[in-house]
Amino acid sequence: MAANSNAHHTPAPVGGNLFNTTTLVCGVLIAIMIAVLAVRFVFGLGAVTNLNDGYPWGIWVVVDVVIGSAFACGGFSVAMLVYIFNKGQYHPLVRPALLASLFGYTLAGVGVIFDLGRW
C-alpha cells in the first residue's frame, strides 16, 4: 500500500444546483411526512398507522429502529475496519459512512419520538 493511502483528501464543494431531482423527490417525501404527522397529532396514532392492541408496534418501529440502526451500523463497521483493524486502504469510505451513520441514528431517534404515543 502507498504510504499516503490513508491521508485525508482536501475538502471541496460538491457544486451543482441545490434543486435537483434528488432534493425535489426528498422534498415531496418530507411534505408527505409533515402531512402524516399533522394527522397523527390531531387524531392519534391509530389514524395514520393502523396500529391496534393486537399489533401495538408496526412499520414506524421498523423504520425507527431497524432501518435507522442499520444505516447507523454501516458507518461504525467501516470505522472499525479502518481504525481497529487498521485497513487504511478503506479510509476514503469513512467520512461518507459516518455521515450516513449520523443520518441513521438521527432518523432512528427522531422517528421513535413521533412513534411514542404519549406527548
Binding site: 397523527r40 397529532f41 390531531v42 387524531f43 392519534g44 396514532l45 391509530g46 389514524a47 398507522t49 396500529l51 391496534n52 392492541d53 393486537g54 401495538p56 404515543g117 404519549r118 406527548w119
Partner: peptide, 14 residues
C-alpha cells in the same frame, strides 16, 4: 394476557 391497552385515537393516548 393482552391486558394493557393503548388509546390509539388520541395524540396523547394513555
Amino acid at each position: 394476557f393482552g391486558i394493557p391497552k393503548y388509546q390509539y385515537d388520541s395524540p396523547t393516548g394513555k
